[in-house]
Simulated scan of single mutants.
Amino acid sequence: MDEAERETFLARFEAFSGITQVAFCVMGGIFSEGIDLKGDCLIGAVIVGVGLPQVGMERNILKTYYDEKMNCGFDYAYKNPGMNKVLQSLGRVIRDEGDLGIVLLIDECFSRYEYRRLLPSHLQHLITVSTHDEVKAQAQAFWQREKNSRDAIDKKAK
């Protein structure tokens, strides 16, 4: 996708703000960082996997080095760069203090301490679900809490 196609794609989200749109993008790709869709242009993301980089010679050299120095080669060569991709991707949803959204992290690894500890403190309140019905219920509850909160603020302002 060239720059003009990218800009056209992103402009659709701003032009049709408030209308449900879905886009599928690759973590680590051109839409997982460096885009700025504020307000209700982007209110959710589904991140599948912990973003581990492909196995390769350079990564394995890095892994061997850190295994020999600190016995944590996998963390430096794979886990930390992968979670950085995850954080970049989920950062597309919340761009400033006025933004609100929901992010689904889909991978069993996100429920393990070794990965959860790499998330910032404001994301430590993850809710673990196992079925699509639970996902639906949690998402509806989230948006209902937000609506109730905004209604309460509007009531106080009057």
Rank of each mutant, 00 (worst) to 15 (best):
S121W: 09
N80I: 14
D133L: 15
Q144M: 14
H125S: 08
Q144N: 15
K85V: 04
A137Y: 08
M57R: 06
N80S: 12
D133F: 15
A77R: 00
M83K: 02
A141P: 01
T128I: 10
C109E: 14
R59T: 09
R95S: 08
T64F: 11
D99S: 08
S121L: 11
S121A: 09
E97L: 06
I94F: 05
D67L: 05
V50P: 00
L62C: 08
L100K: 12
R59D: 07
L90P: 00
L119F: 12
L119N: 02
Y65I: 10
S89C: 08
E108M: 09
R116P: 02
G82R: 03
T131Y: 10
H125C: 08
L105D: 00
K63F: 04
Y76Q: 09
D99E: 08
D75T: 08
T131E: 10
E134H: 10
L123K: 03
Y115E: 05
W143F: 15
W143R: 06
A141L: 13
D107G: 02
E134D: 11
G91Y: 04
Y115H: 08
V103F: 02
S111Y: 11
W143I: 07
G49S: 06
Q124G: 10
Q88N: 07
I102V: 13
L105T: 01
G49Q: 05
L119G: 02
M83R: 00
G82N: 03
V55M: 07
I94G: 03
M83D: 01
Q54D: 07
I94M: 07
Y113M: 15
K147A: 15
G49E: 04
Y115P: 01
F74R: 03
K136E: 12
N71Q: 12
G82P: 00
D99V: 02
D107V: 04
I127M: 10
P53S: 03
E108Q: 13
E58C: 08
R145T: 06
T64D: 14
A141N: 13
R95E: 08
I106K: 05
